[in-house]
Amino acid sequence: MSKPKIGIIVGSTRANRFADKPTEWIANIAKARTDLEFEVVDLRDYPMPFFEEATSPAWAPSQNEVAQRWQKKVEELDGYIFITAEYNRGPTAVLKNAIDYAYNEWNNKPAAFVGYGGVGAARAIEQLRLHAVEMQMAPTRAGVHILTPDFVAVLQQGKKLEEIEHLNQSATAMLDQLAWWAKALKAARDADALTAQAA
């Protein structure tokens, strides 16, 4: 079985987003692993309109060309790390919109979360876990929560995320869980594909 490929999805498209810092940090930690492959997937590269399809992508192909390109990218991946801010106690609108623009492509794959904000985006991540379940993903229990003191230390005091030990520990625990689920679910999907070919 080939190594599972994980997409690190940048869930903000704002001009001065903080998201680039946790994305680079988690990507550097992740790429040191030998059991998974990783790719950064930036929603800036997929400028989809607010969802306006006639029906859910669960039931019919999307008409929007950018959405089709997005769905193809989601399909190529075996799992996901979502980088999210918390806006008004929820995830970013652009990330929720991107999740809604696919369906079958998410199924039976693991999802993990790196959040930043007042409470480490805990409320946004809780909502994203519910969305992940609805999309038939397997969300990990462990996540990374970049709290206000961490945020301030990076933005105002020049500290780097890799220098904050509790975040490194959280990242390791999250990636370990993600790797287990990615390998287990990839094996199951591969087995299902072989069964379907033999039928």
Rank of each mutant, 00 (worst) to 15 (best):
T84G: 10
N88S: 12
Y80F: 15
T55N: 06
D78N: 14
D78I: 12
S62P: 08
Y87H: 14
I81R: 09
E76T: 13
T84L: 04
A58R: 15
R89H: 15
K72I: 01
E75Y: 10
K73S: 02
T92Y: 09
V94T: 11
T55I: 03
A93G: 13
K73T: 07
K73Y: 02
E65D: 11
L77C: 03
Y80I: 11
R89T: 14
R89G: 06
A58V: 09
A60V: 11
I81T: 10
A58K: 15
P57W: 02
W59K: 10
P91V: 14
T92V: 02
D78R: 04
T84V: 10
D78H: 11
G79E: 12
E76L: 04
A93E: 12
R69W: 00
A67P: 13
G90A: 14
F82I: 05
E75P: 00
A85Y: 07
I83V: 09
A85T: 01
P57K: 00
F82V: 07
E86V: 13
S56P: 07
Q71W: 03
T55P: 00
V94H: 00
W59E: 10
P57H: 03
N64H: 08
V94K: 01
N64D: 14
E86I: 12
T55W: 08
S56E: 04
T55Y: 14
R89A: 13
K72V: 05
Q68K: 11
S62R: 09
A58G: 10
S56D: 07
A67T: 08
N88C: 04
G79N: 08
Y80H: 13
P57Y: 05
E86M: 12
N64K: 02
Q68T: 00
W70H: 11
K72L: 09
N88M: 05
N88W: 06
A85S: 11
G90Q: 07
V66Q: 02
A85R: 07
A93Y: 03
G90P: 05
E76Y: 05
V74I: 15
N64Q: 09
W70R: 12
G79I: 09
A93D: 12
Q63S: 11
T92A: 10
Q71K: 08
N88F: 06
A67E: 04
W59M: 07
A60R: 14
Q71H: 05
S56V: 01
L77E: 05
V74M: 12
G90S: 14
P61W: 07
P57C: 03
W70D: 04
N64S: 05
E86P: 15
A93N: 11
E65I: 04
L77T: 09
Q71L: 01
A85H: 03
A93C: 08
E75Q: 15
A58W: 08
D78A: 06
A85W: 02
V94M: 04
A85I: 02
D78P: 07
E75R: 14
S62H: 09
P57N: 01
S56T: 07
V94Y: 02
Y80M: 05
D78K: 06
V74Y: 03
N64W: 00
A58D: 13
K73N: 04
E65W: 06
A60D: 12
V74H: 04
A60C: 01
S62V: 15
T84N: 03
S56Y: 00
S62A: 14
E75L: 08
F82S: 03
A60H: 11
